[in-house]
Nucleic acid binder design. Structure first.
Length: 302
DNA sequence: GCTGATTTTCCTGTTT
DNA sequence: TAAACAGGAAAATCAG
């Protein structure tokens, strides 16, 4: 609940600032927003974070709240929600460009969104279009793909991926859509080892961050993944998994492996003991400690 | 195509 | 009893 309160406070603060400093809908030519995104997080496939962090993004904009009737404050709440959902740095969007109410927001074109929010603009546009449609035609399945197809052929590098919704060639081509899970039956020994991973599409991107770096980056960016892992002793590098399965799912998403579990993740973690990337913390469940060969986790190294 | 590093998967047994 | 831990073994993946 603290996170929600904090977010509301930040919205209120931004709201106050803009009320005093901006004029309505002055849209400057925005510089590249990608460069402002934290590189560590920019590659995360984060389409479905709500599934791994229940409660974090569960407050979706419902159909009964049609965007054209939003107040300016609600527009900002929606913006903040979008940033949270897609793990985009709030600094990436000039909020003063969205000092508009719902009616004005809905009248903005695709180009307006792109001008106002740069590379994030299309995401906001698609999200808003979806909301408008779902409110207008409740019960009708809306496909964002239709919007993308009908739009001008723009080339925007997306800072994150939406593998379950958007085509991979428009977003990050390094991640393919998650394949359907076709778990081999435990009773069939032939398929047990030969298909140990359900479906692994060859990836074009190089091997990304290692598991321990992935864990480290979550710890160093708690505002992006609240409640997944927390420091137990920041100085000694001791940390604890709060939502072990959620972290495993997030790791699985990054590796395009929908069958990742904490059991498997923890096995990989235990291999780090030998390499002294991690040290054992005896007697404490879900607790690990960075070892001498782990880099970049100390505050002095940041 | 080969190799090594790094997971991933599956397993059995132990501990909490 | 369930969840987590421990670690062996083998397969998969990917960069070089």
């Amino acid at each position: 609940m603290e996170g929600v309160e904090a977010r509301r406070e930040s919205i209120a603060l931004l709201w106050t600032m803009v009320r005093h400093t901006t004029c309505i809908m002055s849209i400057p030519s925005t510089a590249s927003i990608e460069s402002q995104l934290p590189t560590t997080w920019s590659s995360y496939p984060c389409s479905d974070i709500s599934t791994v962090m229940p409660g974090y993004t569960s407050r979706l904009w419902s159909q009964d709240s049609q965007p054209q009737y939003w107040s300016k404050y609600q527009v900002w709440e929606w913006l903040q929600q979008m940033l949270d959902m897609h793990q985009i740095d709030a600094a990436s969007i000039p909020f003063q460009n969205f000092d508009v109410d719902g009616r004005q927001l809905c009248s903005m074109t695709y180009q307006d969104f792109t001008r106002a929010a740069g590379t994030v603009g299309p995401i906001l546009y698609h999200s808003l279009t979806e909301l408008k449609w779902s409110g207008q035609y409740p019960g009708v399945e809306f496909s964002p793909l239709d919007v993308i197809k009908s739009e001008p052929d723009v080339d925007f590098p997306c800072p994150f991926t939406e593998p379950s919704i958007y085509p991979a060639d428009i977003y990050d081509p390094s991640f393919q859509s998650l394949a359907p899970v076709t778990s081999p039956t435990p009773s069939s020994p032939d398929t047990k080892r030969s298909h140990s991973r359900p479906h692994q599409v060859k990836k074009h991107n190089p091997r990304g961050t290692h598991l321990w770096e992935f864990i480290r980056d979550i710890l160093l960016n708690p505002e992006r993944n609240p409640g997944l892992i927390k420091w137990e002793d920041r100085t000694d590098g001791v940390f604890r998994f709060l939502k072990s399965e959620a972290v495993a799912q997030l790791w699985g998403k990054k590796k395009n492996n929908s069958s990742m579990t904490y059991e498997k993740l923890s096995r990989a973690m235990r291999y780090y003991y030998k390499r002294e990337i991690l040290e054992r913390v005896d007697g404490r469940r879900l607790v690990y400690k960075f070892g001498r060969n782990a880099r970049g986790w100390r505050e002095s190294e940041k």
